[in-house]
């Protein structure tokens, strides 16, 4: 096949309710070559899940086209369903069935035939480390086990395209890293993956290419490195001994930096984008020293995707509060001028 495997053009979807109108997709374009992991990155409500729902034939767009392997998802949903697997943020498994029964059911609904469905279920349970739990009803599974079973359900037919809609949302860090390993090993087999996430670290870890989505359209695209390079330069980070110095320190950072400085939630860590990292760092340190600001730590680093997102949209990805200690630190900005949401 020439051309990209997934082609999305001008996709529009509007939800109307009595109280408001939501433009979930506002002319979204997307192109995914075969064999890569494409990350769709954006905050809650950006439209990531809506794209996935269109591509997995769950909803019909208002306008625009979407094709997988040249097949139109709206015109020929049945053909699409034979080449995709989907795993969502809400594990779509049957609580009352056992793990084995769930996978066999999916296999039979893919029309694999009873024997093949049984074989595949056993293979997948082994692959996802669920062999021992296979004969227990899913009711008793942990969140991570459910996600693994759900992902196994998406792989029953070895799909050409695998859709992972926020595969690790709500998981504890250990389960998340475990699931990342599983996804990485799948990708090595050449499966094309469309991954949505609101975790920058997840996109950075897994995706070959990223499209950043906000308000229903793509606002930036490229490899993780390209996106970071767009920001150029370095970030200078200083950690204060005393949070009371934050305002004075921010003035110094603002004078030598290229962007408004940001302050972390604890009120002790300040960051600013700079050109010429080493010399900017020296000037900032000298400035802080001259004003008597005592430092706990100081240094510079390359921009992260979090910085990219902040500079593109003016807000952070704002993961659900309190659920996740691995999320990128929120860049709340008392001194930075109205960037917090």
């Amino acid at each position: 096949m020439t051309g990209p495997l997934i082609e999305v053009d001008g996709l529009t979807k509007t939800y109307r309710s009595r109280s408001r109108t939501v433009h979930a997709l506002a002319g979204l374009d997307l192109s995914v070559p075969e064999g890569i992991v494409k990350g769709l990155l954006g905050p809650n409500g950006a439209g990531k899940t809506t794209v996935v729902k269109v591509l997995t034939t769950l909803i019909t767009p208002d306008a625009g086209t979407a094709r997988i392997g040249g097949v139109d998802v709206v015109a020929e949903p049945a053909r699409i369903r034979r080449m995709i697997g989907a795993s969502g943020q809400y594990a779509a498994v049957d609580e009352n069935l056992t793990g084995t029964e769930n996978l066999r059911m999916v296999g039979r609904l893919y029309h694999l035939g009873g024997a093949a469905a049984r074989r595949r279920a056993a293979e997948l349970l082994e692959l996802f480390d669920l062999e021992e739990a296979g004969d227990r009803p899913v009711k008793g599974y942990s969140g991570g086990m459910r996600r693994r079973l759900d992902l196994a359900g998406a792989l029953v037919i070895r799909p050409r395209v695998l859709f992972l809609d926020e595969p690790t949302t709500g998981l504890d860090p250990r389960s998340r890293i475990g699931l990342w390993d599983v996804i990485r090993s799948l990708v090595q087999d050449g499966t094309t993956v469309l991954l949505t996430t609101q975790y920058l670290e997840e996109a950075d870890q897994l995706a070959d290419e990223i499209s950043v989505i906000d308000d229903g359209s793509v606002i930036a695209a490229g490899t993780p490195d390209e996106l970071k390079a767009q920001l150029g330069g370095h970030r200078v980070v200083v950690v204060l001994q005393d949070g009371a110095d934050a305002a004075r320190a921010a003035e110094v950072l603002a004078r030598h930096g290229e962007s408004a400085p940001t302050l972390d939630e604890q009120g002790r860590e300040l960051q600013v984008a700079v050109q010429q990292g080493p010399s900017a760092l020296q000037r900032i340190l000298a400035g802080l020293d001259a004003r008597g600001v005592a430092l706990h730590d100081a240094g510079m680093r390359r921009p992260t995707l979090d910085d990219v997102f902040l500079s593109l949209t003016g807000h952070t990805t704002a993961p659900a509060a309190g659920t996740d200690d691995r999320a990128p630190h929120g860049a709340a900005t008392p001194t930075g001028g109205g960037r917090h949401r």
């Binding site: 769950l58 995709i84 779509a92 999916v106």
Partner: peptide
């Protein structure tokens, strides 16, 4: 429970 979404993405 979301299982309908699973069913609707299958070629059943």
């Amino acid at each position: 429970e979301g299982i309908v979404d699973r069913f609707r993405t299958l070629p059943m």
